[in-house]
Design a protein around this nucleic acid. Structure first.
Lengths: 149, 149
DNA sequence: ATGTCATATTTGTATATACAAATAAATGAT
DNA sequence: ATCATTTATTTGTATATACAAATATGACAT
């Protein structure tokens, strides 16, 4: 295959040997791919992951979502707010705790959400290979756990 | 070492086997580490990388910066605008092209910028190891180049 | 009981990034 | 020469995320 115009490649970048550069470039590309996969349910991947956790564990608290999604408390609140606007979750307050519950509407969406997840997985693993992606995911997670929070 | 409260770990997350989750979690942590390293020059890592490219190649055009940094044209424009406000670069227009030049102020900063780069590299490689990080960076770049733009 | 500290959540604000559309200039075909 | 297409850049707007501060509640020692 001949590229008349040079394709934009990380390998062509001066800073491609820097972890900052590579991890960001990768995350942005993956994000784009994931957005495609979750378009069918009209949610961003983050909202969809959070919603799936809520459906699987009704009444789950924001602090637990923080731990599951590795996002900050404020981000979790904002994600929940958006899902609440869309009538996909409801919040109840008991003392200082908040419980997040799915609605009938979102429970009915669960099969579609799982389809998106499968679709996304198949999508990226067809591009980069099942074993390779599994290996990379493991390496990345090891790193995440080593780095300071 | 005993953790009274469970640390937040990717391994504890339900979705830790998903590339979306892992790549984002990693990028966010790396971003935080990088922000620390570049605090000394008062720039975010993205601004600093862009600025270093401009200093190394005065007159470089936004389109070239897009290719080097794997960011979108609009993002590049916004980054340049901010550096212009800080009097670290200037722009000239010739026809449809734009040239970006460093200022004396930013040229004087180059050693500090490189220090930040070295500091960042030493920082993360002391945490995760030189070979391991190099290997990971290579894997990530291979992926970036495989994924559709 | 009271006061201090820790925990859970939300709110105000800032920021990097992207998409889509707009603008402008260059190229090429007829 | 003129018109359509491509290329380069900017602008308007939206969004996910985070930090810092605010709020509220619970726990615990005295």
């Amino acid at each position: 295959m001949i590229f008349i115009f040079a394709p934009v490649k990380a390998a062509n970048s001066k800073y491609c040997q820097c972890l900052y550069f590579s991890s960001n470039a990768l995350a942005r590309k993956i994000e784009k791919l994931a957005n495609e996969s979750w378009k069918k349910v009209g949610l961003t991947p983050s909202h969809a992951y959070l919603l799936m956790l809520v459906i699987e564990e009704p009444g789950i608290q924001p602090s637990a979502l923080v731990r599951q999604l590795l996002l900050t408390p404020s981000t979790i609140t904002r994600l929940i707010e958006k899902l609440e606007e869309k009538k996909l979750v409801v919040r109840t307050n008991e003392g200082k705790l908040t419980n997040v519950y799915p609605t009938p509407k979102s429970k009915a969406m669960l099969p579609d959400l799982k389809d998106c997840l499968v679709n996304f997985y198949q999508n990226y693993s067809s591009i980069i290979g099942k074993e390779e992606s599994a290996r990379l995911v493991n390496n990345m997670n090891r790193l995440v756990d080593k780095l300071p929070s």
